[in-house]
Write a protein that binds this DNA or RNA. Structure first.
Length: 343
DNA sequence: ATGGTCTGTGTCCTCAGACG
DNA sequence: CGTCTGAGGACACAGACCAT
C-alpha cells in the first residue's frame, strides 16, 4: 500500500499519465548494484532468488546486468547512468548485434560526442547513427554558426537548423524541434523531406526559389516518377544559375516533361504589331511560349544591347576622345581593326 | 537469455475547411 | 485559386510485462 502511494506520487511529480515504476526498479544501474550487494551478502545465489526482494522481473534483471557489458565508449556517453532502463540496454545491444560493434564505435567517433553529457534519447540517436546523418547533412550545406541566425521561412534554413539542433543535442524529434523553434512540426518534416530530394534536382533552383510550395510539388513528382527518373530528367534541364530569367515554374514544367513538342513546333515569326511599340510573336503554342517570356525578354534585350548603341555612352566616348586629341596629338588616330572574313 | 506482445505516446500522412 | 492549418487515422517507438 505504501509503495503504491509512493509510485503514484512519483508519477504525478513526473507529470506523466503512464504509471512509471520507482527509479529503484527502473534503473539498470541500481538494480544491478542491489543484486550484486545481495550476492556479496549471501542473501541469494541466483537471479531468480533475488526477484522477490528487488521486485523486478527476471528479464529486467537480466538486462540490468548487461548494462556493465556494454562497451565503455557507449556507457561514457550517458549524462546519468542511473536513468538507463532495460529498454535502452536492449536497443543498444540490438543495434550492436545488427550493425556490428565497429560500426557503432565509428558512429560515436564521427558524432564528435565526448564525455558523459547526453540524455539516453541522444545516446540512442548516436548509437543508431542519426547524429552522424545530421553532421553529414550540415557539412554538405556548408555548416557554420550563422545557421541559427537565419530566418526560418525557407526549407533549407529550417533543415539546417534542425540538423544543427540534433548535433548539439537540443532535440531528437521533429516535435521537440517544433516546440523550441515555435514552428509547426509539419514544416520541419517537410523541410527534411525536401532536403532529401536528389541534389541534381535541388541544384536546378536558386536556394531562395526552392520554397515550401515548390518543394512540395517536387516531392509529389518524386513520388510519381521515383528518384532515379527525377535525376535522369534533371540532367536535361538547365539550372537557374546558368540561364537568367528561368522560373521555378519553367523547371517544374520541364521535369514533368510537359514541354516536349514535335519538330515542326519551332516555327516562330515576329511581326510588327499595332502602334510603334508593339511586336507580335506568331508560334504554334503561345501559352507554352508565354511561360518563357522572361527568358525571351532577356535574350531580346541582349540582341538590342549588341546592336543598338547607348546614346549617353556615345556622348561620353566622344567627349573623352576630344580630350585625348587636344592633349596628346599622337593619339589622334588609332590603327584600324577589323575581323577578316573567313576563307 | 531472448523474443513476443500490449499500451501510451510520438510521428507521419491525408483531408476538409479557413484564409488571403 | 493556391496555401496554410487543425483534426483524425495509421503506423512507429519506448516502456513494461509475459512466455519460452
Amino acid at each position: 500500500m505504501e509503495t503504491r502511494n509512493h509510485e503514484r506520487q512519483e508519477t504525478e511529480i513526473m507529470g506523466q499519465k503512464r504509471p512509471y515504476r520507482l527509479i529503484s526498479r527502473r534503473s539498470c544501474r541500481i538494480v544491478a548494484d542491489r543484486y550484486q550487494q545481495g550476492l556479496d551478502e549471501g542473501r541469494w545465489t541466483t537471479q531468480t532468488g533475488a526477484l522477490k526482494t528487488l521486485r523486478v522481473s527476471q528479464a529486467e534483471l537480466s538486462f540490468a546486468l548487461q548494462l556493465r557489458a556494454l562497451p565503455v565508449e557507449v556507457r561514457d556517453l550517458f549524462e546519468d547512468e542511473i536513468d538507463v532502463t532495460s529498454h535502452t540496454v536492449r536497443v543498444i545491444r540490438e543495434v550492436i548485434m545488427r550493425d556490428g560493434l565497429a560500426t557503432v564505435l565509428q558512429r560515436i567517433q564521427r558524432s564528435g560526442a565526448c564525455g558523459g553529457k547526453y540524455t539516453k534519447k541522444t545516446v540512442l540517436s548516436i548509437v543508431k547513427g542519426k547524429i552522424s546523418e545530421s553532421k553529414r547533412a550540415l557539412r554538405r550545406s556548408g555548416q557554420d554558426s550563422k545557421i541559427a541566425a537565419r530566418s526560418l521561412d525557407l526549407p533549407k534554413n529550417i533543415l539546417d537548423r534542425y540538423h544543427l539542433g540534433v548535433t548539439k543535442g537540443e532535440w531528437n524529434t521533429y516535435s521537440e524541434c517544433a516546440r523550441v523553434l515555435n514552428v509547426s512540426r509539419r514544416h520541419i518534416s517537410e523541410a527534411v523531406a525536401i532536403g532529401q530530394i536528389p541534389d541534381a534536382v535541388r541544384y536546378l533552383f536558386w536556394e531562395s526559389d526552392l520554397t515550401f510550395a515548390i518543394g512540395r510539388r517536387l516531392l509529389t513528382l518524386c513520388d510519381e516518377l521515383g528518384a532515379d527518373e527525377m535525376i535522369v530528367r534533371a540532367r536535361g534541364v538547365e539550372p537557374m544559375y546558368k540561364v537568367k530569367g528561368r522560373t521555378a515554374e519553367n523547371i517544374l514544367t520541364e521535369l514533368r516533361a510537359e514541354n516536349i513538342r514535335p519538330s515542326n513546333f519551332f516555327r516562330v515569326r515576329i511581326k510588327k504589331g499595332r502602334g510603334p511599340n508593339r511586336l507580335v510573336i506568331e508560334c504554334r503554342d503561345a501559352e507554352l511560349l508565354l511561360r518563357y517570356r522572361r527568358e525571351m525578354e532577356l535574350a531580346i534585350k541582349k540582341v538590342l544591347q549588341k546592336r543598338i548603341k547607348n546614346e549617353e555612352q556615345v556622348e561620353l566616348i566622344r567627349e573623352f576622345q576630344g580630350l585625348l586629341r587636344a592633349n596628346i596629338p599622337g593619339m589622334a588616330r588609332l590603327p584600324s581593326i577589323f575581323d577578316p572574313r573567313p576563307a
